[in-house]
Design a protein around this nucleic acid. Sequence first.
DNA 1: TATTGTTATACTCTATAACTATA
DNA 2: TATAGTTATAGAGTATAACAATA
Lengths: 150, 150
Amino acid sequence: MSETSSPPLAEPLEDFPGYQLRRVSAASMAQLAAALAQQHLSPTAATTLLMIDANPGETQARIARALAIQRANMAPLVARLENAGLVKRTICDGRSYGLACTARGRTAAETVKKIMAEHEASVFGALSQKDQAKLMELLLKLRRGRTSKA
Amino acid sequence: MSETSSPPLAEPLEDFPGYQLRRVSAASMAQLAAALAQQHLSPTAATTLLMIDANPGETQARIARALAIQRANMAPLVARLENAGLVKRTICDGRSYGLACTARGRTAAETVKKIMAEHEASVFGALSQKDQAKLMELLLKLRRGRTSKA
DNA sequence: TATTGTTATACTCTATAACTATA
DNA sequence: TATAGTTATAGAGTATAACAATA
């Protein structure tokens, strides 16, 4: 504390919405990861579990596409969920598996839902209900606004 | 195409603002990374370069804190920028370096600014000027709304 | 031929711990 | 004691290429 509170930095990135988006998203994800650690699930694994829970019997490829996860990256992800006893695969097509939650997986999915709801409230509770709705509207516009997959 | 356009999946995550934020941010970052590839810079490296360019002589630690990058991760990042001839370190304190752009680094920073501006326009141009301003306002509220560092 | 699942591989970003040197 | 920089290491996320099996 000898510098008597050093002069502030120039912050040329602060005016970029994309940079603000990145910072908010990174902070939010770090907090969610910490909250999900008690369930030994990463954010990606947790969202995959929720998707399987909501779509029992669906194939890996379709779940992956909906989450914008590559097939190649889905394989070890699902394997981890299966090894944890949360998901089981059943033969579906000969070349594809159908995914479904086990009893433990459904229980875990319910816990994950609670953790995520609390997390969302913790992060977005800083905004009024009206602002939260507006944010959601803008984010949906941005997703629709992309030419390629988002 | 034998399934006659298979039925849509349930998407339990779509109602979470945090999930939308994550998807938009991920898509935006992927597009930015592709645009910056021509300069052989990652988004993180590019933002670091812009910060150094805007704050010549500042120390690594202060640049890192402003960008929420850990000291340990800053070391190889700056080393790469230095090896690329974009940044040089000058002794500052005995225990700390001052960072500054080289002539090539300043040229690269200008190019990066153009690429980022184009990228932002490409992504957020889907929104009206008013919506863009509102989004920025909401994101800034979310960053301020956090208890810990964001 | 197109799709599914898989393996291998590599790169980026992030996180922690431990060490040295300096304030 | 606190700070700056570094190294080593580990983990998560993502990307491409290639392969076998199946539609």
